[in-house]
Amino acid sequence: MSDPLMIDADATRWAPGDRDGLPLLVMLHGYGSDENDLFGLVPFLPDGIAVASVAAPLTPPWPSPGRSWYPIEGMESRHPDAVTAAARALLHWLDAAASDAPKIALLGFSQGAAVSLQAMRLDAARFGAIVALSGYATPGDLPDDEELRTSQPRVFWGRGTHDDVIPQALIDHTAQWLPDHSELTGRVYPGLTHSVSEDELQDVRVFLEKWRDGSAD
């Protein structure tokens, strides 16, 4: 049995300096990136929240830069068990680094979105909202999936019409799975590639403001 994945807590970027009592948004970057990437979105996020941008636990094969949450090459390409292992690493990091947060949301891009949704499936009660950008829900069943049909966690799923990175089969699966297992806010942005746009960030801000304020509508 392989050792469990571990997130380097020292690599996490935090904002603001004084975050006691603030709702916490945890950001998970995509393949080949690192904790500095999504941290640049902080000015576009709502006021009154704390932000933690974490570094994925794996290093992609040379010459790819940055970090990865799970392999996307070879026999283990996007394997559900690998996504689940990354999600468990995130939950372990939260146990150690954010046990005092009054409420927690996740924002993930690409691989980070897949891991965010998988973490929701493992421990939905821990999260008040999930923002999944240019990502997907991992195929396969998990023990708590049926419970999600009742609890309906709040999820924002945004993607572009010109995103050619995520396989169409995974997009199709996610488009069927999320409405059945979450309270979904879905947005498709014309012309957007595998990236994030200003229009999408504005929609994300509104979604997170409702989470911050406890709004149900």
Score class of each variant (00 low, 15 high):
P63C: 11
A114H: 05
L94A: 05
S2M: 08
V196P: 02
F127P: 09
W62D: 15
K210F: 11
R121A: 03
T84G: 07
D145C: 07
F109L: 10
P65M: 13
W14G: 00
W62T: 12
L28M: 15
A105N: 09
Q176H: 11
P139Q: 04
D213L: 14
W14R: 09
A175D: 15
D8Q: 12
G160I: 04
L28P: 11
G32H: 08
S215R: 15
T138S: 12
L94C: 08
S33V: 01
Q152D: 01
S77T: 15
L90S: 02
P71M: 10
I72R: 12
D141V: 08
G186K: 01
P139N: 09
V42I: 13
P23T: 03
Q111G: 04
W62I: 06
G112Y: 04
G21K: 09
L45W: 06
L142T: 03
A101W: 06
R13C: 07
F39P: 00
T12S: 12
L41Q: 10
G191Q: 07
K103V: 00
V165M: 14
A125G: 14
Q168P: 01
Q176M: 08
P65W: 03
V206L: 15
P61I: 01
R126L: 03
L106D: 02
D217W: 05
G74R: 02
R19Q: 09
A169D: 14
Q118S: 12
L25T: 01
G32A: 10
S182R: 01
M6C: 11
H29Y: 07
D34W: 06
S134V: 02
V196G: 10
A124P: 06
A216C: 08
I130C: 09
A105G: 13
D95R: 12
W157E: 01
Q111H: 13
T161F: 02
D180T: 06
R187K: 15
T185I: 11
Q118G: 00
D34C: 12
L133E: 08
T59L: 14
W177M: 04
G21Y: 03
P139G: 11
A89H: 04
V42E: 01
D95Y: 11
L41K: 03
T193H: 10
R78C: 14
Y31M: 12
R126Q: 08
A87G: 14
T138L: 00
R67C: 11
G214C: 09
R149F: 00
Y70I: 05
P57E: 09
I130M: 07
T150W: 00
P60C: 10
P43A: 10
Q202E: 14
S116I: 02
G48F: 07
D3V: 01
V188R: 07
P102D: 09
G17S: 12
S215N: 14
L192V: 06
E209F: 05
P153T: 06
E35F: 00
Y70Q: 09
E209K: 09
V83T: 11
P60M: 09
